[in-house]
Nucleic acid binder design. Structure first.
Lengths: 113, 113
DNA sequence: CCATCATATTCCCTTATCGGTATGCGTCAA
DNA sequence: TTGACGCATACCGATAAGGGAATATGATGG
């Protein structure tokens, strides 16, 4: 049972580096599949499959334009991720104070390895 | 070649729902493995394995406390994720304007399926 | 040193994922 | 209608992830 109910989850969708690349590119505007594939150095089926995942979680939208199919960004799904990580914001500041205490302490016990 | 170079990446670490739960719990303070497992309804080995992933990407730190091993949050690694998604912030506002135009357009062509 | 408790690791199985290649399907032009 | 183009899907192989159960490791108390 690999990766449990992770599928079709936005967190999972952006766990893939190439999919993140696609999203970054789409900030500049819509693109057809072939152009995405070319810009990212992947095959056309590869791009299509990543786009399918992104579409299923709602991060991209597609639109027909003649023979082409233009993919566009729908970044609204990224907002929950931004907010989720934002829930830790106080902790990554606090880390420098409270965590440093840990780090000293565990260096003392765990250094012989 | 499943999941490519995703491994040992923070994005991948938080792609797992249970690992996200662990991080949320650890905001309230350090905890031993067994307590985490109990609170999340998973087995002890299961918790240990998830904690291992989180440790390898630097999201948690462990510290010995007698027979126990206390895990604590190190949220600094979440900051890049927060910033990455933040790079799309203007787009999830803009979406309501620009994207709605797409959506109307593609409903017209893609509705027969 | 031995027993015990807490945790990590290993093994096994099932399943998902990624990449590539080949192929199917829809659209447009002639 | 046919052929070319753009893209999606199916299939295949390799990989590795997640869960469970059993076991190993490590520290502690007596």
């Amino acid at each position: 049972m690999a990766r449990a109910a992770t599928t079709s989850d936005v967190f999972n969708a952006i766990a893939e580096p190439q999919r993140r690349e696609i999203l970054l590119l789409l900030r500049a505007g819509e693109r057809p599949v072939t152009e995405l594939a070319r810009e990212l150095g992947m095959t056309q089926p590869g791009a299509s499959k990543h786009l399918r995942v992104l579409r299923e979680v709602g991060l991209v939208r597609d639109r027909r334009a003649g023979k082409q199919r233009l993919y566009g960004l729908d970044a609204r799904g990224l907002r929950p991720v931004h907010e989720w990580t934002g829930g830790f914001e106080q902790f990554w500041n606090e880390s420098f104070d409270r965590l440093d205490a840990y780090l000293q302490g565990l260096d003392r016990t765990g250094q012989e390895e």
